[in-house]
Amino acid sequence: MIRVGVVAALGAVLAVTLAAALARAVGVDFEIPDGGETIPLAGFAVVTGFCSLVGVVLAVALLRWSARPTERFLWTAVSLTAISLVPPFVAGGSGATTIALLVLHLVAAAVVVPALARGLRSAEAGR
């Protein structure tokens, strides 16, 4: 399970960083008005990697302590993904930045959540 999760996390880091670079190339500035700072590409990689690894820890914990780990993981992951869509709206960035951040959150979830769910299903079947 951990191997599946780490590979998924690396895939999400790559996908999000490439998508952010593409968004920047087409004119998205990723500037957050409060400090006037621009989110660097490395920032996307670090935050995506950290949050993805939190998902891996959650999946491993549910596999260990839950009677229905896949179901619990999916409910939790979908809920956390929905919650993660709120900060881009309140960060105060431009419309393009807000939309790009929303898309990047969904890209990360689209890579990590299905991979971990498949890994949990396989692990459950092997019990």
Rank of each mutant, 00 (worst) to 15 (best):
A96R: 09
L104G: 05
A61P: 05
L106E: 10
R118C: 08
R24Y: 03
A42Y: 02
T48M: 10
V113Q: 00
I32G: 10
A21Q: 09
A12G: 01
R127P: 08
F30D: 07
F44L: 05
G35L: 13
G49Y: 09
A12Y: 00
G43L: 14
A42M: 06
A9F: 00
V46I: 15
E71G: 10
V60Q: 06
L80Q: 08
A82D: 03
A8Y: 01
G119V: 08
L41W: 12
R64S: 11
I32P: 06
F50P: 02
G92I: 05
R24K: 12
R127Y: 08
I32N: 13
R64Q: 13
V16Y: 01
A12P: 00
S84H: 08
G119Y: 05
L80E: 04
V103K: 04
A20L: 09
V13M: 15
R118T: 06
P114S: 03
E124I: 13
S66D: 15
G43C: 14
L22I: 13
G5M: 00
V13E: 04
S79C: 11
L101G: 10
D29T: 11
I83D: 03
V7Q: 03
D34A: 15
A19P: 03
G95I: 08
L101P: 12
T48A: 11
T98A: 14
G93H: 04
A45F: 11
R72W: 07
V107K: 03
L63H: 14
V47F: 14
A45L: 10
G95L: 13
I83S: 06
G5C: 02
A125H: 08
V107N: 06
S94P: 04
V103M: 06
S84P: 04
L63V: 03
A15V: 04
G36S: 10
R127E: 13
I39D: 09
L104K: 10
F30G: 07
R24A: 14
T81C: 09
P40T: 05
L53P: 07
L74F: 00
G92F: 09
V107W: 02
F30R: 08
P33K: 07
A100E: 07
P40Q: 08
A9Q: 02
R121H: 05
A110Q: 07
R127N: 13
G36W: 09
F50E: 06
I99T: 15
L101M: 15
E71W: 13
A15H: 03
A82Y: 00
L18P: 06
V28L: 13
E31N: 06
E31Q: 11
L116V: 07
P88T: 04
D29I: 02
